[in-house]
Design a protein around this nucleic acid. Sequence first.
DNA 1: CATATATGTCAATAATACTGACGTAATTTT
DNA 2: AAAATTACGTCAGTATTATTGACATATATG
Lengths: 170, 170
Amino acid sequence: MADAGSRHKTRANPLFLREEKLRQAMELLFFAYRDFTGEANAVLIDYGFGHAHHRVIYFVGRNPGITVSQLLGILKITKQSLSRVLGQLIDDGYVVKESDRGDRRRRLLSLTAKGAELWTQLTTRQSNRIARAYREAGADAVEGFCTVLRGIINEEDRGRATRRDSRNRQ
Amino acid sequence: MADAGSRHKTRANPLFLREEKLRQAMELLFFAYRDFTGEANAVLIDYGFGHAHHRVIYFVGRNPGITVSQLLGILKITKQSLSRVLGQLIDDGYVVKESDRGDRRRRLLSLTAKGAELWTQLTTRQSNRIARAYREAGADAVEGFCTVLRGIINEEDRGRATRRDSRNRQ
DNA sequence: CATATATGTCAATAATACTGACGTAATTTT
DNA sequence: AAAATTACGTCAGTATTATTGACATATATG
């Protein structure tokens, strides 16, 4: 009885509590992402698109002039997978592709006015959800939120969701 | 020139900064979730499973005795979708299904020893990732992280990723 | 007994994604 | 200038996840 083991729930057991907190985090992440994306998915159905289209629209809108391979690097999917989705978006007039004048092998992607409109429609919804959560949580919590999320991201990609200057243009 | 418009990046423009912060949050969420799940997906390939199996394994492991409909409520997919995945996990001996003695319409799901082993293998990897991020961020940041994530989740499901007592058994 | 609930299943389809193989154009290297 | 590399595209086949719709069965509840 006196072996301070690892299965008692007495409040002096940080190991148990730690594991509990970590699992809680995993679930929070699951549910938050599920609901965060669910909202946008509903909008996309009206356009005949899915979440893959959303991701493309989003990152092209956010990084005008992004190349195909840069986009592949962000999405981490194969070019064959991207091809279908991107092709549809171009055919339907949401995205345009033009040759880079500097390196004509490259294709630069950007949104049309129509694409920008859809981008806004999708983004404002998700953005409102985040804004509400931010407002309710307060500035300090927001900072913690970003710090932890950044720590979860693979080191090589941590910079991607930060810098808004000195990017994309080489 | 004196119209204090909405497109200058002068540091006295909270609206611009706000939008920027919100989009940053969306991207952090995207990348964090991508990398968080990517690791587990790699393990699952060796078992011939996909991420759908992971989610089932995870929530069954976390909620032993969960019913089929409760699981559907968490995953928010159709029962036909769940059926295939759950059937495979049962056939391969990772999950067991037994009738609830109280209400024999219900099927209670739980992991086998083999299932628990896979659960641990998957969870420790993800858990380590979170733990590292937590350690680097500090306790206050962690609290903020949880608070904001909870705020992002649809109100009706916010309780799901918290309570570990007084649940599941009614 | 009638109805509702919990689960299962058959069938058809869509969306996302993969591997592998090849082709072309443009740039870079030797 | 020839050779190699890079960026992109595409054809074919397949796997996984998910959907809608219809129907069946067992159990519980009024």
